[in-house]
Write a protein that binds this DNA or RNA. Sequence first.
DNA 1: AATGAATGAGAATTCATTCAT
DNA 2: AATGAATGAATTCTCATTCAT
Lengths: 210, 210, 210, 210
Amino acid sequence: MPETDLLSPAAAGKREQTKAQNRRAILDAARAVFADMGYQAATVRDIIRRTNLSVGAFYNYYRSKEEVYEALSDDGARRFRPILAAQYESAPDFQTYIRGAVRAYFYFLVDEHNSWQSGRDPADRYPHVHSETPEMKAVYDQVRWSIADVLAKGQGPLVDVDYLTAACIAIAREVGASMVERDPIEVDDAVEFAVQMILGGLPALPRVTP
Amino acid sequence: MPETDLLSPAAAGKREQTKAQNRRAILDAARAVFADMGYQAATVRDIIRRTNLSVGAFYNYYRSKEEVYEALSDDGARRFRPILAAQYESAPDFQTYIRGAVRAYFYFLVDEHNSWQSGRDPADRYPHVHSETPEMKAVYDQVRWSIADVLAKGQGPLVDVDYLTAACIAIAREVGASMVERDPIEVDDAVEFAVQMILGGLPALPRVTP
Amino acid sequence: MPETDLLSPAAAGKREQTKAQNRRAILDAARAVFADMGYQAATVRDIIRRTNLSVGAFYNYYRSKEEVYEALSDDGARRFRPILAAQYESAPDFQTYIRGAVRAYFYFLVDEHNSWQSGRDPADRYPHVHSETPEMKAVYDQVRWSIADVLAKGQGPLVDVDYLTAACIAIAREVGASMVERDPIEVDDAVEFAVQMILGGLPALPRVTP
Amino acid sequence: MPETDLLSPAAAGKREQTKAQNRRAILDAARAVFADMGYQAATVRDIIRRTNLSVGAFYNYYRSKEEVYEALSDDGARRFRPILAAQYESAPDFQTYIRGAVRAYFYFLVDEHNSWQSGRDPADRYPHVHSETPEMKAVYDQVRWSIADVLAKGQGPLVDVDYLTAACIAIAREVGASMVERDPIEVDDAVEFAVQMILGGLPALPRVTP
DNA sequence: AATGAATGAGAATTCATTCAT
DNA sequence: AATGAATGAATTCTCATTCAT
């Protein structure tokens, strides 16, 4: 409730900039930490340690580990949603949609993958960890929903919708995960593989009576 | 005052039996607890609470929470390995092998699923937890290895082995997970779906030059 | 949920005894700490420090500072209630009741006062503290209630009940507090003073119309 | 950009005025907050939240939370001292002095009470807190001292000075506290009650030999 | 002077593991 | 072997105070 702004605009701008940087630093650190050791095992201190902020600073930006997780999810979803939506709108048939969605997802993964460097080997210290960033989860949820939607609208074959969704998602997820482990990363090869796997399997699937 | 060394063989046998029972009780409790809330969130007290035992007794049987996890993994792997091995030995071709492996995996899942009752919905209290029991993980690793092996031996098509393994595993995992959520569980339908998805996709896959 | 009690009765008894001792040690430490620096300023660590227990042990016995406070209150109330009740039952008139209650209260105070030794000077480090133990508060509440009750039943003069209660309580409290500061403590003198102060003032009080 | 040193005297005066206003705003806020939740539980942010100021500004005016407390005490004492002193000078006897002092104290209380509005009921959130503003404490100390002085000078009866002081103070305090809880507040009735309680009790008190 | 983000010591609490009985 | 209280490091979060702007 300051009465007036006594700071110069420049100074105020710098303040804002620093805040934005710190916010991002926390998110980046959190992404790396969650990827390294999983959400459950990660502690707020782990996140802070990858930052040059103090404990207090963390709590100035986020009220808990949970809130960071949400922010990360939102971040991923927000960036991926428009891409996926475009595919969804423009695709004339199921095949085209699948290809577009998988491609979009894989490029997103590569992007994510490039944006952080895991400092040390995760699984060594914290076993049993499913490294899945909240962003991946958010994107994955989006894809799941849109596949289900396309199928539900009858634009796909008359198969078990749940199973097909699960299978598509599964393929995209795992092939994607396998892809980003390689060096160099060949996105188009991976897209082709996943798409053929999905589409090739379709004709043979057991039909259901709606 | 504890019983002394002056036991009859019968009494000694009884004691062995009790030990085995306790060991199993701990594993059963741990399986349920890990499934409910994940390894990290689970506390040793959570485990022993589902047991007749005291904290101290727990540590007589396992030296740490970690060790219980390992034991659970071993347990699952040990039970599943022979089944899978049989498929592996007897299968004349890739198709047969896949069908056998998926069927074996799905029946294993159903078995696991029936063996514990999640008291309440875990995800409510512990968000972002991918409940995956150590046993599932172990079995999954086995399947992954054997698929890779079959492919490596040239009994499958000339495709990207890593990707195919990943895709097969992914399909089996997710369709399987989807299957056990249903009531009633129709194992054979799910097997058929997963198998067709995998095998149907094969011919269309991009070939690689070895 | 131990199957049987394998401990000898003697050992079990010792366990129980130790627990009782620890429980008391915590209460004693808490009483002293609350008296020294007030409930608000007191920390759980302050309490533990006056004990040879560990942090964890504290939480084995009480779940929070608050719970210790409650226990202390209950303790005081439980010990004082019967004494006060006896006065209340047997007193033929207001004068007798007041004298009995004040006497009981003062003896209780002396008892309390003797039971703990403030290690260092409180007010130096934690200013603005109203040193009032929860036990004193509980007893005080009892007395307040019983005076109000006696007056409400018409056994006292027709005066403003709230004010009279407040005044009686106030006199007892402050004269009592003053009393225990002295060395030697002369309980009977203090009782006499307080009682005369209360009863002497009665006739002159403004009457109210009920 | 802050104003520079090139200010007109008028502007400088204005700044002085602002400083005084801020100082008062902090004190008012602090009084309310301390009353609501006690000194310990109150945070500096609680205080500035009831203010137009920033954290930094707070520390421009007072160097610590403690210092604010002191300032409040001084404030109350400073305002009340002259009033009490006047009574003290002009009173021909003990009776008159007591009546004057009590009346002055009660009017002071009413004044204090009107000057802040407790937002919600404090005791709900912070148990066991005897909300006593530093100002009340300061005034109370003054009264205590002056009664003791009057008695010491032999203008009162030959009774136990400590006890009488304690009792007078106690009555004034508690009846006063009870008074301000009422709506409407009837100061004169309360004064009459307290004065009669004190003076009425005097003749009956045990005499001491000096 | 004002601003409000940053700091970090310190508070409450949990929990894997040990150990006396 | 069994028991369960004790331990204390580790965790989350708060808040008085400082300091760059």
